[in-house]
Amino acid sequence: MQNTTTDQARCLHCHRILTSAKSIALGYGPRCARKIRTAIVDTTDYKTHQITSARELIEDGAIIPLRSVIFISVSTDGTETYKTAPTACTCPAGTKGARCYHQLAARLLLAA
C-alpha cells in the first residue's frame, strides 16, 4: 500500500522539511537547533532555573510560533497553554507582570 499523505515535518524555525528522526522529534533542524542553543540573549533578569526551563521548553518543542513574535507555550505539567511574546505572557507569572521562562524562550527563538 502506498502512503498518500503529503504532510511532512517542518522545522519550527525556518520551515524546511525535516528528514532525520532526531530533528523531527526535536522540531528543529540541526542548524536551527544550533542557532537557538548559541543565541545571545540578555539573561541578567532571569534566574538560573528559568534559563534552564526556557531551554527545556524549546528542546521539548513546547513553544510553537503562532505569528511573527507570538508563540503558544505549554505549561510545565502540560495541562495548559499560554500566548507568549518576548515581553508578555498569559501564564500566571506573566499576568502578574513578572518575567517568566516562556518569555525567555520566545526571546531565544527570535534571536536565533
Results as ranks from 00 to 15, higher is better:
P86L: 02
S23P: 00
L66H: 15
C11D: 06
A106C: 09
Q2T: 12
A98C: 04
S75M: 13
L12D: 01
T38C: 12
I58L: 02
L108Q: 03
A25D: 04
M1K: 09
L26Q: 13
V74W: 14
V69D: 12
K96I: 02
A9Q: 01
T4K: 07
L18I: 02
T44P: 01
Y82W: 14
S73D: 14
I72M: 08
G61M: 06
T95F: 01
I36L: 11
R34C: 10
A106W: 05
T87N: 09
F71A: 03
D60S: 06
C89I: 09
L109Q: 09
T6Y: 05
T43P: 00
A21I: 06
V74E: 12
K35F: 15
Q8V: 10
Y82S: 02
D7C: 03
D42G: 08
E56P: 00
R10Y: 01
A54R: 00
T4E: 03
S75P: 09
P30L: 14
T52K: 13
L12Y: 02
N3W: 11
T84P: 05
Y46Q: 06
K47C: 02
C32F: 09
C89K: 11
K35H: 12
T43H: 01
T90Y: 04
T95W: 00
T84C: 05
G97C: 12
C32W: 14
P86G: 03
G94Y: 06
S20K: 04
D77W: 03
G94K: 04
A54I: 04
D77H: 14
A112F: 00
D45Q: 12
R55K: 11
A54M: 00
G94W: 06
S53L: 08
T48Q: 10
A39W: 09
D60L: 06
H102V: 12
C32E: 09
G94N: 03
P65L: 09
T4A: 11
Q50K: 11
T79M: 12
S53N: 11
C100H: 08
Y101T: 07
L26W: 01
N3R: 08
I72L: 15
V69K: 10
C100F: 13
Q103L: 13
T4Y: 06
A105S: 07
K83Q: 14
I17F: 02
Q103E: 15
M1S: 15
L12S: 04
A85E: 15
N3K: 14
V41M: 03
I64F: 10
R34A: 10
D7F: 07
I17T: 15
A25Q: 09
V69Y: 07
A98T: 11
A33K: 14
I36D: 05
T84F: 04
S75D: 13
Q103F: 12
